[in-house]
Simulated scan of single mutants.
Amino acid sequence: MDSTGRGDDGRSAGGRDRDEEGRARNARPRDGLGRPLPYGAAGVARQPEGVVRTPRETVAEAQALLDDGKPFHAHEVFEDAWKSGPEAERALWRGLAQLAVGLTHAARGNVTGGARLLRRGAGAVEEWARGPAGQPRPYGVDLAGLAGWARRLAGTVEVTGAPVDAREAAPRLR
């Protein structure tokens, strides 16, 4: 155990993972779709949490992660924007995060959850675009195109019942 009461594997004396501040946080490595791997396994580097980016940096970083087949990690980038951005844009970033999580579930083979989140995210970004502060292409993001992509993918997942390849199924945000 170190001075924070954590062992070499990040777990507390009680067996629960904790971060540097002592908050509960799963320290297990993750694969590219965010699934936990056994302790000690080689995993994909996690996205740092609480990073404040400009909206354009958020979109660029999320797109790079989507292109790399890592929608779970893209969702974390959108979640940072949702939590740190202006109140008027929170619904936009939350909707984009839902789209990324929907793709994550679809790639993991969770047909019901994937389709549901893809449709929820599509509705959220469309609703935001129609709202008083909304716009159809904030920061160059094609919200109508994304909503169409999400609904098509949801239908495909439901019809095939098979996991999708996250890299091949990734949307173009702009």
Rank of each mutant, 00 (worst) to 15 (best):
M1L: 14
D2N: 15
D2C: 14
S3G: 13
S3H: 06
T4D: 15
T4E: 15
R6V: 01
R6P: 09
R6Q: 11
G7K: 01
D8I: 01
D8W: 15
D8L: 09
D9V: 08
G10Q: 05
G10S: 05
G14H: 02
G14N: 10
R16S: 06
R18W: 00
E20S: 12
G22K: 04
R25M: 11
N26S: 12
N26D: 14
R30Y: 15
D31F: 13
L33Q: 04
L33I: 15
L33R: 03
G34K: 05
G34F: 00
G34A: 08
R35V: 13
R35S: 13
P38C: 11
G40W: 02
G40M: 10
A42S: 15
A42D: 14
A42M: 14
G43C: 05
G43R: 03
A45H: 08
R46K: 11
P48S: 13
E49V: 12
E49R: 11
G50M: 07
V51P: 04
V52P: 01
T54A: 06
R56M: 07
T58A: 05
T58C: 05
A60I: 03
Q63V: 10
A64N: 09
A64P: 07
L65S: 03
L66I: 08
D67L: 09
G69N: 04
K70N: 04
K70H: 11
P71T: 02
P71S: 07
F72Q: 00
H75R: 09
E79N: 08
D80T: 00
D80Y: 00
A81G: 05
S84K: 12
G85W: 00
G85C: 12
P86G: 14
P86T: 10
A88L: 13
A91T: 14
A91N: 10
R94Q: 14
G95K: 07
L96F: 02
A97G: 14
L99I: 13
L99Y: 12
V101D: 00
T104G: 07
T104D: 09
H105L: 11
A106N: 05
A107T: 03
G109R: 06
N110R: 10
V111Y: 01
G114H: 07
L117R: 02
R119D: 06
R120P: 00
R120G: 02
G121C: 06
A122P: 07
A122Y: 00
A124W: 08
V125A: 01
V125N: 01
V125C: 02
W128N: 00
W128V: 03
A129V: 09
R130D: 11
P132T: 13
A133I: 10
G134D: 04
G134Q: 01
P136Y: 14
P138N: 03
Y139H: 09
G140V: 07
A144P: 03
A144V: 02
G145H: 12
G145M: 07
G145R: 03
L146G: 03
L146C: 07
A147M: 06
A147F: 00
G148A: 04
W149A: 01
A150D: 03
R152G: 09
L153H: 01
L153A: 02
L153S: 02
G155Y: 15
G155P: 06
V159P: 01
V159Y: 07
T160V: 10
G161C: 06
G161N: 09
A162F: 15
D165I: 10
A166K: 02
R167K: 13
R167T: 07
R167M: 10
E168Q: 15
E168P: 11
A169P: 07
R172M: 10
L173Q: 04
L173F: 02
R174L: 12
